[in-house]
Design a binder for these strands. Sequence first.
DNA 1: AGATTATGATACATTTTTGATACAACACCT
DNA 2: AGGTGTTGTATCAAAAATGTATCATAATCT
Lengths: 213, 213
Amino acid sequence: MSKILIVEDEQPIVDLIIMCLKASGYETDYALDGEAGADLICERDYDLLLLDIMLPKLDGYELLAYARRENIPVIFLTAKGELQDRVKGLNMGADDYIVKPFEPEELLARIHCVLRRYKSVIRLPDIKIDTRQRSVTLHDQPVHLTLKEYELLLYLAENGGIALSRGQILANVWESDDEDTRTVDLHIQRLRKKLNLEKTIQTLPKIGYRFEV
Amino acid sequence: MSKILIVEDEQPIVDLIIMCLKASGYETDYALDGEAGADLICERDYDLLLLDIMLPKLDGYELLAYARRENIPVIFLTAKGELQDRVKGLNMGADDYIVKPFEPEELLARIHCVLRRYKSVIRLPDIKIDTRQRSVTLHDQPVHLTLKEYELLLYLAENGGIALSRGQILANVWESDDEDTRTVDLHIQRLRKKLNLEKTIQTLPKIGYRFEV
DNA sequence: AGATTATGATACATTTTTGATACAACACCT
DNA sequence: AGGTGTTGTATCAAAAATGTATCATAATCT
């Protein structure tokens, strides 16, 4: 079952949440300040974080950065007045928020929703990409991709069905605006070869490429 | 009418733009820094963004990323010297740019153009054009068009019912002012053949062509 | 009608773009 | 220093796109 970390400095709230989660079969850990939370995030592997924003030592936003690094979804626990916080958190990449005080049912619903929505695994025909492990398999056989190959694959997969110019690809994967280079073509070739994507990655002559979905 | 968000840190420019847009019947919002802009983009639904590049807190490129996520077209407002910015922006997927200071008429023209162009699916009898995919189907069967064929079709479809001279077509699709060439005729033929447009693309002898709608 | 001009159809030559391969530069690790 | 892996450039071959030339056909004009 999923493992959830709670970082929240008010013990009674922590206890309440843990009770709820245990009852629903989730595994839980908790930390009462940001630093302890950060340590746990690094040490262990969680499927979801519940983060208070106002925390001693390290605040929720900083923990959010940790979470992003490890690709763990986050739900913020915000106090009533902190609408701005909420917006900022969502902008920074939180997956949801819940306003304290909340009903246990609502919390569970949101957790369920985020976990379901949060696909660290992208499934394509024959290919599976696990963004948390940064691993790719073809017919369940692991395939080694270099960094650029992996990033390119991800970009293509995320933009499946859309025509992408070389310029766009370069800008987004390489963060370059070079015009006169065949780098993209070469990496497309390598991906096609490694993952049998000859048909899936369509060449659009004079335009660029399109990843068929 | 369309809703447009302006993100620009110079209030006088904002006021000017708002005045223009209101006069043309657009609904407007504005933000004076990148963060406020990001919040608005997430909260509300815009049809178009006008983005300055140099902005406090979050720059135009970052906002562009937000826009891409929500599929909102973007026009950059660039200062005179920033040609590189312009190129980078276009590569990253901006739809147009305009150099400050600009004439209100020009801004309106570009806005109009982008909004029209950004409709991603154009439906014609039997034919569907998806501009995001850069794909064309005839009776739901994909039809392969070359770049020029595709651009020509788009131009014709956008100017349905209007008589177009070869000169106009050449100017708009080929960006050429060649006089003595049969290129247009040839491409019209190819389109007619590929998409059963013998009747739909009317020949206007001594004039040019007209796409019937 | 016959001449003239404009357009349609086809074939082909040219140019441009992409695929494939080899290799050089570079970083990283031991 | 040597080995390994990644990344991008250079080169050539293959494929695709594009435009010209040519001739047939249709429309127009005197």
